[in-house]
Design a protein around this nucleic acid. Structure first.
Lengths: 241, 241
DNA sequence: AAGTGGTCTAGACCACGTT
DNA sequence: ACGTGGTCTAGACCACTTG
């Protein structure tokens, strides 16, 4: 809650870019909590790229446009839409209960029922993205048309109490199938940016398999990343020559 | 150090995928530290996608191949090369001191000297990526050819004591300039995946501007992301109609 | 010297899952 | 009932930056 409160204040420029937040000590008094609690909040903002903590000086508000296009995380299209104020529209092309194709089977055991959902995303009236989702049927038992048109994540989290936890994404460039090419009004070689996602719940069970086909001329992915020194320092020892 | 130690044990399957780590209490005893310290370590592993913490049960080791292609962070090509055991090679095409083109000026004040560096990355003998870097000249005063061929990050961090902190990345698909097209042996429409990065030091000063041109057929970006609920909940209030 | 963030501690209480 | 992780506390000492 503290992190969110500060994030909102940064968003509204109450804490302006290039200025320092109140010191951790002052934030303790402001929120009436201990310092470690404040520090955990600031750590979240640091990880998101909203601030940069500088030893001996303070927590500097960054002016990176983290609110303009926060795609990197697991952000649903609807949320993006709200945040950006784009003139975006979602058209549900298909919604039916089927089986997950074995070609997509990611270590899935045999036949796996799922809701298949195909949605076309339009921005300013132009087709931009075609999403194909499989929502595995345990755990997703029902999927109202309204949820598909609105926001699946809002439905799952708020209505059903699902705890969506993490996702893996893979971005490649591929030649689009004819059906996709048609729906996206593609010309030329028919190359699309393909974003494949696997999304998991807090109990580590897989519940969503997505293929997102993006028009290459409209595709833009922005990312914020902090330098980690955990995995990279585990260098292989080279044999002594 | 604790996070790294556990990460290595996960990598070497001492802690196997789909099993639980020792409980936080046991890890306290193992490392002789307090619980909060263990928890901070586990939080790092959680953020990296190595484990999933489950309340009431324990910390589950995930079997996502986080060691096979950890591109998402700020990982230098050399590090990737080591991690993957790919037959990769870097050819330095150019290294000279110039000015940053004003077209790239990202709020840079006037004339900004920098080292321009062009490198071709070959994988299994095939050109795969063309990197064009500008390393701003304060703070980078010298740039030995050897560092460019080996690893710039290792040089900056280990030799010069730089603290590389974070980067923004932007991925788009564009038509490659003729010079790039040639060096990458591109045919057809000459589309490339363009990854633009701005990399910053811990004091928030910009020091590197990179454009990476990837052959679209070789490009692959994988990402691990956890669901955040800080930015997304700051919904705009809709006007009451 | 004073203020800042970085790290750690030894305890506490809670919520969740399993037995 | 017990063990697990989730959260918080009130203090401590350190390292860095600035006046």
């Amino acid at each position: 809650m503290i992190a969110q409160d500060i994030a909102i204040k940064i968003k509204h420029k109450i804490y302006a870019p290039q200025t320092f937040l109140p010191s951790e000590h002052k934030l303790c008094e402001l929120y009436g909590t201990s310092r470690e609690t404040i520090r955990k909040s600031l750590e979240q903002l640091n990880e998101l790229g909203l601030i940069q903590k500088i030893k001996g000086r303070g927590s500097l508000v960054l002016n990176l446009q983290r609110f303009t296009f926060p795609i990197s995380g697991i952000t649903s299209f609807k949320e993006l839409n709200q945040t950006l104020g784009m003139h975006a529209k979602t058209v549900v092309l298909q919604l039916e209960k089927t089986m997950v194709p074995t070609s997509l089977a990611v270590g899935l055991s045999n036949e796996q029922p799922a809701f298949f959902l195909e949605r076309l995303r339009l921005i300013d009236g132009e087709p931009d993205v075609l999403d194909r989702d499989y929502l595995l049927s345990p755990p997703v038992e029902k999927l109202p048309y309204q949820a598909a048109e609105d926001s699946i994540y809002a439905y799952l989290e708020e209505e059903l109490g699902f705890k969506i936890s993490y996702a893996t994404k893979e971005i490649t460039v591929e030649s689009a199938p004819a059906a996709v090419r048609e729906k996206l009004n593609l010309s030329g070689e028919g190359l699309v940016v393909l974003v494949r996602s696997l999304t998991y719940l807090a109990d580590t069970s897989l519940f969503q398999i997505t293929a997102s086909y993006h028009r290459p001329d409209k595709f833009k992915f922005t990312d914020f990343a902090r330098r980690k020194r955990i995995l990279t320092h585990t260098k292989e020892r080279k044999p002594q020559l």
